[in-house]
């Protein structure tokens, strides 16, 4: 665990309603850009079954899982559509110098 900010990607690497996978150590995460242009970083594996959320799509403020169309609200991590019921962890994000940073502590 660390409180350090880590560089994730260039801010312009993501379009509106876009998602990208990134790995940090053993962890798989996603960085997303929602419909309002804001950036979010969250755990990258669906809490329903072990499926990469980066294979899904961002719809409005939510990420939809590719396997069963479950959804998580990226602003809160809450599971907002069945079959997902357990939230995903999300992390602090900042944009500096055109780069996306996340604090994965």
């Amino acid at each position: 665990m660390s409180d350090a900010w880590i560089k994730v990607c260039a801010a312009d690497a993501l379009a509106i309603e876009d998602v990208m996978r990134f790995d940090h150590g053993e962890r798989t995460l996603i960085v997303c850009r929602t419909a309002d242009g804001s950036y979010h970083v969250a755990d990258g594996i669906c809490t329903h079954e072990k499926v990469h959320l980066a294979d899904g799509c961002v719809l409005g403020n939510a990420i939809e899982c590719a396997k069963h169309n479950g959804r998580f609200d990226l602003r809160t991590g809450d599971a907002v559509r069945r079959p997902c019921r357990v939230p995903i962890a999300r992390y602090d994000v900042k944009i500096e110098g055109g780069e996306v940073y996340a604090r994965l502590g």
């Binding site: 329903h48 079954e49 396997k67 069963h68 069945r82 079959p83």
Partner: peptide, 10 residues
């Protein structure tokens, strides 16, 4: 049926 169909896809 919602859950059954999720399993059908898994």
């Amino acid at each position: 049926w919602r859950w059954s169909h999720a399993r059908h896809h898994s």
